[in-house]
Design a protein around this nucleic acid. Structure first.
Lengths: 219, 219
DNA sequence: AAAGTGTAAGTTGTGCACAACCTTTATGCA
DNA sequence: TGCATAAAGGTTGTGCACAACTTACACTTT
């Protein structure tokens, strides 16, 4: 049924696993990854794993140095700020470039996200928050039919996600969770109005606020 | 002096060479590339070359199929249109997100581009036009300090460049050259006014016109 | 004649051994 | 003791042989 050849399927699986680990800070910036060890863990040889690391390097998540190792990158604060600037603009574009029609199903998904977010309020946990945020981000990009916009947004998201997560550890987790739930609430309202542009604007606004918050925390 | 290890330098060289060949239609869509042949041509083994092809695949320029070959992709017209939509927006953002200060040197570069463009008017040639267009595009993205915006713009540019080139062959080359020179002229005017936003708007407007032209030619 | 089957050629994917390289540590010498 | 040097260990990069896979074609069978 699946038209994914084994090789490609495995590549996607490993890539996703590694990307998630990096973005969830299982491998904090500076961590030295061993090709041999990872290959053994995933039950392959170095060759397919190197393909994965090569892509992660292209995406800016790791950097390989001959004779040294493959190291998880950190992100320069200035560059991160500029990346967020772009992410904010792209979030707004989701509402303008080939937005999808908001169906009942999409509204239901929005409602589901809110429910799951509210569950976090009673039991805040940074990893669960990060995971939900990641899932919700994908949901957000799925609101445009523009593939290039989707791919670009996700690429930039994964580049900055762990920095937000690191900042969240320093900020108040409870407060950050509450802010996220508020975003989910605003978002659901826009979806219920069947207004894709409004939903995109909600995201845009919250990215702006997030930038301000992280900048304030850095001081 | 150069801090590029041999391996990385070679990778960048091969990647750039292959990308240029694909975008200049030396390898038209559908071409089947042979790892062995290419490796021999570049004087390496398959291994480093496969790293290059892997990245080209991530960029959407080729697709590798086990047992079949590595094939230069074509772009779906609808997807291309949506990619152009995004490129148009990004072009405008260059003027708003961390634009550089327009120096005399930058103005001189703009003037140089115009001179070279005008030289093409007397002797139009599609390859030379494509090359100049590519160089001018890089010049355009260099007008922002936002690395993510630069990288993203270039990524999308290379994804669509060959489609524009293919369309140009069908359109009138002389007319297309004249339009490009007109853009260079407008651009220079904006630069001379030291107005980065105006320069970005010029590019934005011309991408819009390009979209309309290609769409019209397709009918 | 048509359909099915096997075989051969050509391609990408994988695993392994080794080369190239960097870092750390030990060692010898002043 | 201090410093230079080399040696050792560990890492990524490369080349090669072979596995896995697809396609095309010839051949056989119905």
């Amino acid at each position: 049924m699946s038209d994914q050849p084994d090789a490609r399927a495995r590549f996607l699986r490993l890539h996703d696993a590694m990307r998630t680990r990096i973005c969830l800070l299982d491998y904090p910036p500076g961590t030295r990854l061993s090709e041999e060890t990872l290959a053994a863990e995933f039950g392959t040889s170095r060759t397919p794993l190197r393909r994965v690391l090569a892509r992660l390097e292209d995406e800016g998540l790791v950097i390989s140095q001959h004779g040294v190792g493959t190291i998880v990158t950190d992100v320069d604060p200035g560059e991160m700020a500029r990346t967020y600037d772009l992410r904010r603009e792209l979030a707004g574009l989701v509402g303008r470039l080939s937005p999808v029609a908001i169906t009942d199903e999409i509204v239901a998904m929005g409602h589901d996200f809110l429910t799951r977010g509210e569950a976090l309020l009673t039991n805040p946990e940074v990893r669960a928050l990060a995971r939900l945020n990641m899932e919700y981000f994908h949901f957000g990009t799925s609101l445009t039919m523009n593939e290039a916009l989707r791919d670009t947004s996700e690429r930039l998201y994964y580049r900055t996600a762990r920095i937000w997560l690191k900042a969240t550890s320093h900020l108040d987790l409870v407060e950050e969770t509450a802010i996220f739930v508020a975003e989910l609430r605003d978002s659901l309202q826009a979806l219920q109005a069947r207004d894709a542009q409004a939903a995109a604007d909600v995201r845009r606004a919250h990215i702006s606020l997030c930038i301000a918050r992280v900048n304030a925390a850095r001081r």
